[in-house]
Amino acid sequence: MMAVTIKDVAKQANVAPSTVSRVLSDSPRISEKTKKKVRKVMEEMGYYINHNARVLVQKSTQTIGIVMKNSTSASLHDPFFPEVLRGISALCHQQSFNISITTGESEEAIFNDVVKMVQGKRVDGLIVSYSKKDDKVVPFLVKSGIPFVVVGKPIGKANEIMSVDNDNVQAAKEATEYLIRLGHTKIGFISEQPKYEVSAARLQGYTDAMRMNNLDIDADFIKHLDKSEPMKRVVDELLDGSKLPTGFVVTDDIAALNLLLCLREKNIKVPEEVSIISFNNTIIAKLATPPLTSIDTQIYQLGYESAKCLIEEIKNPLMFKKSVIIPTFIEERGSCQSLLDK
């Protein structure tokens, strides 16, 4: 079946091909009545805009790039990213924008994907889905001058970078104070590597809450997970030192579920012996046994607002670089128990 052309539409609508082109670009020189008639014919004939041709004319791709935190497979296994993508997609759909995602499996490959997107003029702007130290992507985007938004608090000249984030210091402070109100004084903190800004901010919130409540911060209770320090080893180390906290603030639901499973292997009951509060309030928190009390970071909204800010900047490059803060709240479930009743 041959693709329908502008000439075919013009013939059917009984107008000049130049009129059809003007309808496509929503020219004010064409009356609403003619626009309506031509659009109806397009729909009936199944005419679709040739985006490649449009890019050449408008110098716009109607596409935004999304920079993943790490390999696509790892990112999509973490329920945080599909939910961010859902928010981004919803706004892009409203604005008729497409999405292009980095597919590199390493930091270097992801950076090369970004360079190709920018230098190949494949996207109008980008959303960087993380903020971390020693990142090459953000400095490259600043230098290139392309519109972009960071999901997280930018490191460095934050006032020159558009961002959408939660107040992670405050959220972690509230999570820690939630356990303190339940009578916990020995509280542990578990996060992924602190090179990510979100981990550092949540650690700050935890230490602020402990200090403000005159509680000792035990360095042995602060653990950062990586390949050499998996959750099983963290739990073993705490048990070997006979110093298991009665409560844990864990920076994401996956790590909290992992902690739950490691404690179960050791026959340590949650919440009877140990309480856990985590972050992100993903499907994992709801389905865990017991279900996890978790800080809802409104992930969908983070994605939606980041796309909204980016498309605003694409359409108006001179707009000021704003920072949007998405509020958080605690979703209480069964993984925390008061020590005050004991």
Rank of each mutant, 00 (worst) to 15 (best):
residue 144 S to C: 05
residue 146 I to M: 12
residue 118 V to F: 10
residue 71 S to F: 02
residue 76 L to R: 01
residue 6 I to C: 00
residue 123 V to C: 06
residue 245 P to A: 10
residue 72 T to S: 04
residue 320 F to R: 14
residue 3 A to M: 12
residue 224 H to G: 00
residue 81 F to G: 01
residue 33 K to R: 01
residue 20 V to N: 01
residue 316 N to W: 00
residue 308 K to I: 01
residue 12 Q to R: 12
residue 114 V to A: 10
residue 255 A to E: 04
residue 65 G to H: 04
residue 97 F to S: 02
residue 302 L to V: 12
residue 325 I to Y: 12
residue 112 N to Y: 13
residue 342 K to S: 12
residue 94 Q to N: 13
residue 286 K to T: 11
residue 282 T to P: 05
residue 107 E to T: 04
residue 102 T to W: 03
residue 41 V to A: 06
residue 103 T to M: 15
residue 150 V to D: 03
residue 217 I to A: 02
residue 232 K to I: 09
residue 209 A to C: 04
residue 291 P to I: 10
residue 63 T to Q: 06
residue 336 C to F: 03
residue 175 A to I: 09
residue 267 N to E: 15
residue 132 K to I: 08
residue 284 I to E: 11
residue 99 I to G: 00
residue 151 V to Y: 03
residue 214 N to E: 14
residue 10 A to W: 05
residue 17 P to Q: 05
residue 288 A to K: 03
residue 294 S to K: 07
residue 134 D to Y: 13
residue 217 I to T: 06
residue 220 D to R: 11
residue 277 I to N: 04
residue 141 L to K: 10
residue 297 T to F: 08
residue 64 I to Y: 09
residue 332 E to R: 13
residue 89 S to W: 02
residue 193 Q to Y: 13
residue 250 V to A: 12
residue 189 F to W: 11
residue 158 A to P: 04
residue 284 I to D: 05
residue 58 Q to L: 13
residue 200 A to R: 13
residue 195 K to Q: 11
residue 75 S to R: 03
residue 211 R to C: 03
residue 212 M to H: 10
residue 106 S to E: 00
residue 245 P to Y: 12
residue 305 E to D: 06
residue 338 S to I: 03
residue 7 K to G: 03
residue 337 Q to K: 15
residue 340 L to I: 15
residue 15 V to D: 02
residue 272 E to G: 09
residue 45 M to N: 07
